[in-house]
Amino acid sequence: MRAVVTVAGTDRRGIIAKVSTLLYERNVNIEDISQTILGGQFAMIMMVETAENDEDFAALSEALDALGKSIGMSVRVQHAEIFDAMHNV
């Protein structure tokens, strides 16, 4: 399913490498990456394709959360549907 990975926090080296390695190990395909600096804060948004089943998604979500904690940033994955719903008529 389509999902969005977001990484936010203070910019530092190796963020993209760490996150994309984790995604690669979990067989998640990255389709698009964009990044931006907002008010001194780094924000990266990745469009990804994940496995369909809930267990894998839950495990991915936990792994990204744990990675975020280890590098002091907020890392999350969400179904893309929520953004479609909220921002498109």
């Binding site: 907020s74 999350r76 909220m86």
Partner: peptide, 16 residues
């Protein structure tokens, strides 16, 4: 489709 501003807006809505 949605852009990065929409993604960040949604996340801000939840977090802040």
């Amino acid at each position: 489709m949605f852009g990065k501003n929409e993604v960040l807006e949604t996340i801000d809505m939840v977090e802040k």
